[in-house]
């Protein structure tokens, strides 16, 4: 599903990723960990082509993402759901509208939008707050909305960039459980975190980065 071969990325001559190679199979759950500035976010950004790499190859679902033209990137991104540490919820919209927005973007019809958005909120336990605005929710709830939004289009891949970074351990564990649930339903999950508690709680494969290099991997049998 995701293949990286000798990938290099630099920012103003500072190496961000150095000779990164790995393969993540379809339906896998993989943690990417490492200290701040290790290159976790950069690695994820390469997968949905928010950033491009300097050398090597990144294949997502068999497509060389580095070669996709800007006007065609939407095809790649519709297969990928992304969850951010800062949630990226639209403050002017209700949480139902926030989730529905992604369905509007892909051109779903009104009936489907209403049904799927509501169902996605129900799956993260927030259907009763559908008319609330993001500001009126707690951090954990906002992150659940972000997950619902990332999953509403049934993406093949779910990427999460420190989704529990702002949450206390109990909430973090709850959020991890939502990702595992999505994984159980067949979504490939790449979860970037620096939290050891999360890593220990979830028994999944781990890629450890340090200064842009892979320094350790844990494979789950």
């Amino acid at each position: 599903m995701i293949q990286l071969y000798n990938v290099y990325k630099t920012y103003n001559n500072t190496p961000a990723l150095v000779d990164i190679s790995f393969i993540i199979k379809k339906g896998a759950f993989v943690f990417v960990t490492g200290p701040s500035g290790a290159g976790k976010s950069t690695l994820l950004k390469l997968l949905y082509r928010w950033e491009n790499y300097d050398r090597g190859q990144v294949l997502v679902n068999g497509t060389n993402v580095g070669k996709i033209k800007f006007n065609r990137l939407w095809k790649l991104r519709r297969k990928i759901g992304v969850v951010f540490q800062d949630y990226k919820l639209l403050q002017r919209k209700t949480i139902l509208e926030n989730v529905a927005f992604v369905l509007e973007i892909v051109g779903a019809d009104k009936k489907t939008i209403r049904f799927k958005a509501w169902e996605a909120l129900k799956n993260v336990g927030l259907s009763h707050k559908k008319d609330a605005y993001p500001m009126e929710l707690s951090g954990g709830e906002q992150q659940r909305v972000a997950i619902a939004r990332a999953l509403v289009n049934n993406p093949k891949i779910l990427l999460a960039d420190e989704p529990t970074g702002n949450l206390d351990p109990e909430l973090a564990s709850e959020i991890l459980h939502l990702f595992e649930q999505a994984n159980n339903e067949g979504t490939t999950v790449v979860f970037a975190t620096h939290s050891q508690i999360i890593l220990q709680e979830g028994n999944h494969a781990v890629i450890t980065l340090k200064q842009g290099k892979i320094v350790d991997t844990r494979v789950v049998v």
Partner: peptide, 16 residues
């Protein structure tokens, strides 16, 4: 800006 970024991230076509 936030909305447009979200559209780009979620697979909005350039036309959309």
């Amino acid at each position: 800006k936030d909305e447009i970024e979200l559209m780009l991230l979620s697979g909005g076509t350039p036309g959309f």
